[in-house]
Amino acid sequence: MTTPAPVQTNKAGLSKNDYRGLPSTLCQGCGHNSIANQIITACYDLNIVPEEIMKFSGIGCSSKSPAYFLNRSFGFNGLHGRMSSLATGALFADTTLRAIGISGDGDTASIGMGGFKHMVRRNAPIVYIVENNGVYGLTKGQFSATAEVGLNLKHQGTNQYMPVDICMEALASNATFVARSFAGDAKQVKELLKAALSHHGVAVLDIISPCVTFNNQEDATHSYTWGKDHEAPLHEISFIPALDEIELQGEFAEGTVREVSMHDGSTVLLKKLEKDYDPTSRANAFQMLESTQLNNWLVTGLLYINESKPTLTETFNLVDTPLNRLADPDLRPARETIEKINAMMF
């Protein structure tokens, strides 16, 4: 007789299953599924209780994916391009909760560009993931605003217009955390997610996430093949939670890594690769993005980080109790105040 292996749990006492969502209805091989899996793993690894996360999305293939992870988290799949505003309001309900927003390149870089940039400039505390595949999937294969010049798509012809660089837009809007990754690089996605979940403010993750159905031609810049051939990581990233000791040895020997201290006490270790890269400089980030455009690289990693800016909700000096748990005496001014108010009128 064999006894079933004990279910592995994390420090929150939860198993991986407690972090899963419904079965995905996206295409097999879709980059978005792999990102959903990394969200599950990152949250499990960080011992986050699912009830302490809110999920948001807009409309599109990417925006379906919050259904495929963290079933026990509250979620809201809103309107096309409007995830930013929906989430911004919801963030005030209970500021002890963390938020993950999933958007796509159509949702963010076209219809939702204004909202995206304003959410970024307000430093709303949310992990804002763009699952970027250069194409509209759910409406069957039209160009998105991140499609490269010269891209040929069936029924669409050739794209003539310059692509929007989501990281560049985020930086220009004073984002405090900007990273680019590739769905084919699961480990990096996971470590960046952990860093993003610990970030103080808005964390923009532009993840190239190939659409296997409509835009996965070998020479297309959002394809698996192109990504694998052109990915140039800035560093090897690993996330060290707050209470864990940092041991620098072996590959991560002193002098070869940068340590970035996060607001919550955790640390992001960035192992130098060919060149050293300082992600605390916004100018560096701009320069790096500019050179990736010129040289046709898929530079991935943490492009920019600034842990020192106040978040949107912090700027409001809110009471400690979550606003949505306040009741009458806190919300309705006392009876005697009405006379004073009337006296203030003429």
């Binding site: 309001g89 204004g114 909202g115 304003h118």
Partner: peptide
């Protein structure tokens, strides 16, 4: 940033119990 966002934020907050 615009009325779309204004109502969106208000709806987000309403969903959040505010």
């Amino acid at each position: 940033e615009d009325e779309l966002a204004a109502v969106g934020m208000a709806i987000g907050a309403g969903w959040g119990g505010l």
